[in-house]
């Protein structure tokens, strides 16, 4: 699998590695997918990178590759920002080859990472017709998670036709941030758009939302999909190639 802009792959890994330290990559002719839960089974990430999004892609037989994302992240940090990246696994090999190439082709780096034998547990995610779908700048969402974490461990997300409100309370007191739906969309990247069938009010752990925000550099906009008594879906699109979707179980009143 070759990417002209290897930095896209580095951003994917940075987006996942805090939530899941290691994961099984499923490779097929259609592309690369990954599904993994965090160790406490509260959050799940689902990654899709379609074959047509790569400069070149070939997969002769389906493979499951157990990879340490922490190690891969360390290797990818050595990559120059404009380098291209090729990932290769040879038949019957127990390692993955990560090759980087500088833009003017005067530097070539090759790394081999040992594959891991991982127990992977797969969950079926039902197609959900969410009550609310919010789109907002991903930088704004990162900022909100950071700001709300000052006040408490949990954030309550409430939606109305006018906008969306994030609030948190704790020992210090309480705080809230309300975003109003953009009425006059000039730049789509900066817009706040709320599609609502029913109002929702759901509570989530800020710590996990903040971990999801590590994937924010992938996309200028984030999608948040919400329904009562349903895990939140937080989506970052990967250009024309696919997406990273995070799911987070809500907090519930005892």
């Amino acid at each position: 699998a070759r990417l002209l802009h290897g930095s896209i792959f580095a951003k994917v890994i940075e987006g996942l590695r805090e939530l899941v330290n290691e994961a099984t990559w499923e490779c097929s002719g259609n592309g690369i997918t990954l599904q993994a839960m965090d160790s406490s089974h509260v959050a799940l990430v689902s990654l899709v990178m379609r074959s047509e999004g790569f400069e070149s892609y070939r997969c002769d037989r389906n493979m499951s590759l157990g990879i340490s994302l922490v190690s891969m992240s360390k290797v990818l940090k050595t990559m120059g920002k404009d380098d291209s990246l090729t990932i290769r696994v040879n038949d019957d090999s127990d390692s993955i080859i990560i090759a980087m190439e500088s833009q003017n082709q005067d530097k070539f780096a090759d790394y081999e990472l040992r594959l891991m034998d991982l127990d992977s547990e797969h969950l079926g995610i039902p197609d959900t017709d969410y009550s609310c779908a919010i789109k907002m700048p991903s930088s704004e969402f990162s900022r909100i998670c950071r700001d709300m974490s000052i006040m408490g461990d949990s954030v309550l997300i409430c939606t109305t036709k006018e906008g969306v409100k994030f609030s948190a309370k704790g020992d210090l007191g309480q705080g809230s941030i309300r975003l109003v739906q953009t009425t006059n969309i000039e730049k789509e990247e900066e817009a706040v758009i709320i599609e609502m069938k029913e109002a929702v009010a759901l509570t989530f752990a800020v710590r996990y939302l903040s971990m999801f925000c590590k994937a924010a550099p992938l996309s200028p906009q984030v999608g948040l999909s919400l329904s009562e008594d349903t895990p939140l879906m937080c989506e970052f699109k990967i250009a024309e190639m696919g997406h990273v979707r995070f799911y987070l179980a809500p907090k519930i009143e005892d």
Binding site: M37, S40, H41, V42, A43, L44, E121, H122, L123, G124, I125, P126, S154, T203, A205, T230, P231, Y247, A249, P250, K251, I252, E253, D254
Partner: peptide, 14 residues
């Protein structure tokens, strides 16, 4: 009290 639920009740185990 507010409790953190896990994902299992929401998704099917494959």
């Amino acid at each position: 009290t507010v409790l953190q639920s896990d994902l299992y009740p929401y998704f099917d185990k494959l």
